[in-house]
Simulated scan of single mutants.
Amino acid sequence: MKRIGITGQNGFVGSHLYNTLGLKPEEFERVDFEKEFFDDAEKLDDFVKQCDVIVHLAAMNRHPDPEVIFKNNIDLVTSLVTSLERTGSQAHILFSSSSQEEKDNLYGRSKKEGRELLKNWAQNSGGKFTGMIIPNVFGPFGKPNYNSFVATFCYKLTHGETPVIDNDGEVKLIYVGELVQEIINQIENAETNDFFEVPHTSVNKVSEVLSKLEHYKKLYFENGEIPELKSKFDLNLFNTFRCYFDIKKHYPVKFTQHTDPRGAFVEVIRLGIGGQCSFSTTVPGITRGNHFHTRKIERFAVIKGKALIQLRKIDTDEVMDFYLDGNEPAYVDMPVWYTHNIKNIGEEELYTIFWINEPFNPEDADTYFLNV
């Protein structure tokens, strides 16, 4: 088992890496990091001593003064190197650099010089070092106006704002889940590579990305229809988009009922994609679920009885409660990385329709059990 620490543990990439490592407790032990450790040599040394692997992700990306970015990022690397030297560590250090290295800006310089500092430490100490050159990263929970133009577009489209394209160039992109797997691969390989170019997984014009997101807004955000997702990039972009709703305000979404003397008709889901549709009955007092997915799209539709659906993003404490009643059929969709459940809180059987975008495969279930 490898003991792994992540500087920038609570950041965009860091939180995804931390949570993904947590899915394999038999392989990885996570050593918790707090940003205050950089201001306390004793705490930083204690952290370093515990780690077989340190993934250095902590950095500043944006600031009105580029000199502040440069100084901050170099200071963080220098603090880490000094601690590695004080403790005699021979850990495997993975450093998150950027394709900005080749550009003439202070952020790119801070990354290139930081990588050189860690490379020199590894050569002098006998430690291992992987300098990762990372393309533009997008995915759920990125900060708008900070981590990615994709995050900015998603936020604006779901909050009544209009995205603006500053430069409609082609952008090399990688989904955060794909980047995390690349990092884990490098951890498992445990080989020194001071200039490892993480391969991008798609190339898109900014306007093409915005067009897809605007399509998702019209079909899904406004009308509840699952769009056609022709590629893995489309699925990853759609799952990213879904995480920028104000979930507490958006759900539950009531269905349109068509009634006549025979009874009622409700369209549960309109699809541009395949998947698996299931039906369940649940007796009073019973709870189903208490699990989360990292890639699947899932809809719970209550058509009879009274239900409480609960969601919680896995690294937070906030539980969101949604009360549904079959007298007014409604649905709630499950965002990725949110553990969820459904409980019959009525006095009769609960009837629920479940749709998920891929048939269940017990060998690759993408289902991780965790109480809400």
Rank of each mutant, 00 (worst) to 15 (best):
G263F: 03
E113K: 06
N105E: 14
M1N: 07
S211N: 10
S15R: 01
D234P: 00
K218V: 13
V150L: 12
L23C: 06
L94W: 05
T130M: 04
N185K: 09
S278W: 07
W337G: 03
V268P: 03
E178H: 11
R86P: 00
I93E: 01
L44S: 05
V176F: 05
E102T: 14
A41K: 14
L311Q: 08
V198C: 09
S125R: 05
K248F: 03
E26H: 10
E178Q: 15
N223G: 02
S148C: 09
E267A: 09
F322P: 05
N72T: 15
H16W: 02
L229I: 07
S97M: 06
K43H: 05
A330Y: 07
I93G: 00
T339M: 05
D315I: 01
G114S: 00
V176M: 06
N204R: 15
P261C: 00
S211G: 05
V68N: 10
E222N: 13
D364A: 15
D321Q: 12
E197D: 11
G224I: 08
F245K: 09
G127W: 02
P261T: 03
T158S: 12
Y251V: 08
N341S: 15
E328R: 13
V203A: 06
L84V: 00
E358I: 12
K156E: 15
N290S: 15
T87C: 05
V68W: 07
N371M: 07
K313S: 00
P252E: 13
T7E: 00
C277G: 11
Q100M: 14
F141L: 11
D45A: 04
T78V: 11
V198P: 00
N61D: 06
P252R: 13
I4M: 03
K111Y: 03
I4N: 01
A59W: 08
A58G: 02
Q123K: 14
H159W: 03
L350N: 07
P140E: 13
P284L: 07
M320S: 10
C277L: 15
G114K: 00
N73M: 07
F292S: 10
Y323K: 11
E214M: 14
Y220V: 06
T78S: 13
W121L: 03
A59D: 08
L173K: 05
E318P: 00
W337F: 14
P261L: 02
G285N: 10
T162S: 14
S148R: 09
L324M: 15
I226D: 07
L229K: 09
N357G: 10
G169D: 13
E182G: 01
Y368I: 07
W355L: 11
D52V: 01
V68C: 06
L179K: 04
F33H: 03
E101Y: 08
E85I: 03
E178R: 08
G8D: 05
T282W: 08
K71M: 07
H159D: 05
R295C: 06
E188S: 06
P227C: 10
V77D: 03
M320K: 09
F300A: 12
K218T: 13
L76M: 11
G160M: 12
F360P: 04
N193A: 11
L308S: 06
P140D: 06
